[in-house]
Amino acid sequence: MFPIEYFIGLILIGICAGFASGLLGVGGGFLIVPLQYFLLKYIGVEPDLAILISFGTSLAIIIPTSLSGAYRHTRTMDNIIKPGIRLGIFGIIGGALGGFSASMLPSRVLEIIFGLLLLFVTVNNIVNINKEKEDAKIPFNWITAGIIGLLVGFSSGLLGVGGGIFLIAILTALLGFSMIEAIATSSIFISLTAIGGFL
């Protein structure tokens, strides 16, 4: 029997993740995974199992929250649908490969990798604060969509995150997307990628 504080914790985590998804174009996994992991450990779940439950649950939550964000964004920007779907097709494959890899690795390795992810998020947000739109450094085509989709999708499945934190940085720094375009495109991408990682 789970204690009542476990269910209260899950509700609060869900609210925070949903808010982050709609506002920032990310799935909220960078919040869901560590918070749920510590919550599961608190109620006595073994770390190896707790980390995998956190990853899987995170990806399951990301699917509906990112779909909700994607729907809102596509109502105001129709130019994001094609790049979002292109990236998402390859993201599903990468997500499935990443999820399989996560199930093979020990929890301590996954904890370290996730810690590095959070460090990347922090540094990236500091570097890109108030950053202006840049010109595209590489063209956006099926080849670049395939490479980016697979790599970001793999990280999504491996770490239980939607991958938006990586994709937004790539879209703005390399492909010349504005921040709002990158956030909106990311919301479509992660709704597809999370399916592969969850499965």
Rank of each mutant, 00 (worst) to 15 (best):
Phe140Asp: 01
Leu105Ser: 13
Leu116Ala: 12
Ile11Pro: 05
Phe19Cys: 10
Glu111Gln: 14
Leu110Ile: 12
Gly14Tyr: 08
Ala173Asn: 15
Ala136Glu: 08
Val45Phe: 11
Leu167Trp: 01
Ala17Leu: 08
Phe7Lys: 07
Leu110Val: 06
Phe100Pro: 05
Gly157Ser: 09
Ala102Met: 09
Leu35Tyr: 03
Leu175Tyr: 04
Val45Tyr: 10
Thr172Lys: 13
Ile62His: 09
Ile61Glu: 08
Asn124His: 03
Ser178His: 03
Phe189Cys: 00
Gly88Phe: 04
Leu31Trp: 13
Pro47Leu: 00
Leu117Ala: 11
Ile113Gly: 10
Ile51His: 09
Pro139Gly: 05
Ser191Gly: 11
Leu110Glu: 08
Gly162Arg: 03
Ile170Leu: 13
Ile89Lys: 00
Ala182Met: 02
Ser191Ile: 00
Gly160His: 09
Ile92Tyr: 04
Lys41Glu: 14
Ser66Met: 12
Ala184Val: 12
Pro83Arg: 08
Gly162Trp: 02
Ile190Tyr: 06
Gln36Val: 10
Leu158Pro: 13
Glu5Arg: 07
Leu175Asp: 02
Val161Glu: 04
Ala182Tyr: 01
Leu49Gly: 12
Thr65Ala: 12
Leu10Trp: 06
Ile43Asp: 00
Gly149Tyr: 09
Pro106Cys: 03
Leu87Cys: 00
Ile61Gly: 02
Ser156Val: 04
Ala17Ile: 11
Pro64Gly: 09
Leu23Glu: 02
Gly164Cys: 12
Phe100Trp: 15
Asn125Val: 00
Ala20Lys: 09
Leu52Cys: 00
Leu105Asp: 11
Thr185Cys: 09
Ile190Thr: 12
Gly56Trp: 06
Phe2His: 10
Phe55Cys: 02
Arg108Val: 07
Ile138Arg: 11
Thr65Pro: 07
Gly28Lys: 10
Leu12His: 03
Tyr37Gln: 00
Leu175Ser: 04
Ile190His: 05
Ile129Leu: 08
